[in-house]
Structures are given as structure tokens and as C-alpha cells.
């Protein structure tokens, strides 16, 4: 496995620069992000999707079409906004694509 922290130079997100607390470095889909301490998984996903998240599942049940794993464990969508990210976290945000 590649370690994104070993290769990416530090980049400070705006919110990290405006707070006094030490920023949090994490990997989001393999790219290093820096966010303010206390940032939630919900905010990390929202920044990634930029409001363009696919909506709706093919079988009509309530699902957003995307899912997130934090350090190799699924975090249910309903828990994203109460899940803070921490230094060194690995976040993977997946969706369905053509395949099989």
C-alpha cells in the first residue's frame, strides 16, 4: 500500500490556517488533506463531493449512492456528522461505477 503521507507535501486548508489548534492531516481517497481540529467526517465528505454527490440507489431504497470508510471500517452515513477525523486517519469515499 502506498503511504500518501510519505509522498505528499503538506498543504494547509483555509480553515486550518485560521484556527489556533494544530491542523489534522489525513488521507482522503489517497490524497493528503489538512483540516482544522474537530472537523467531522461529514465535512470531509462534503468537501470532496463539492455538492455533486450521486443521489439515489438503483433499487429505490433510501441510500445516498456513496459510502465512507474511516481506517478500514464503514461509518454509517447517519454517524458522519458526529465522527471527528483525527491526525493520520485514512478516509475512503466510494460510489458505484460501471463494472462486472
Amino acid at each position: 500500500m502506498n503511504d500518501p503521507f510519505a509522498t505528499e507535501p503538506p498543504t494547509f486548508a483555509a480553515q486550518a490556517r485560521t484556527t489556533g489548534a494544530a491542523p489534522v492531516r489525513l488521507s482522503v481517497n489517497g490524497a493528503v488533506r489538512e483540516v482544522a481540529a474537530g472537523t467531522t467526517l461529514a465535512a470531509v465528505v462534503a468537501e470532496l463531493t463539492g455538492g455533486n454527490a450521486p443521489v439515489g440507489s438503483a433499487d429505490g431504497r433510501r441510500a445516498a449512492g456513496i459510502a465512507a470508510a474511516l481506517n478500514e471500517a464503514v461509518v454509517p452515513r447517519g454517524a458522519w456528522d458526529r465522527t471527528p477525523v483525527r491526525d493520520g486517519d485514512r478516509v475512503e469515499v466510494l460510489t458505484a461505477v460501471q463494472g462486472g
Partner: peptide, 20 residues
């Protein structure tokens, strides 16, 4: 079937919308 891959926010329209 569909595959699960990292979200690419630049992609417009998904296979899910076709199936739906």
C-alpha cells in the same frame, strides 16, 4: 452489477441513474 470505486466528483451522471 456495478463496481465500487473512489468517488470522482468530476464525473457527471452515474451508472446508478441509468439503472434507476
Amino acid at each position: 452489477t456495478v463496481a465500487m470505486r473512489r468517488l470522482d466528483p468530476g464525473v457527471q451522471g452515474t451508472v446508478l441513474s441509468v439503472l434507476s
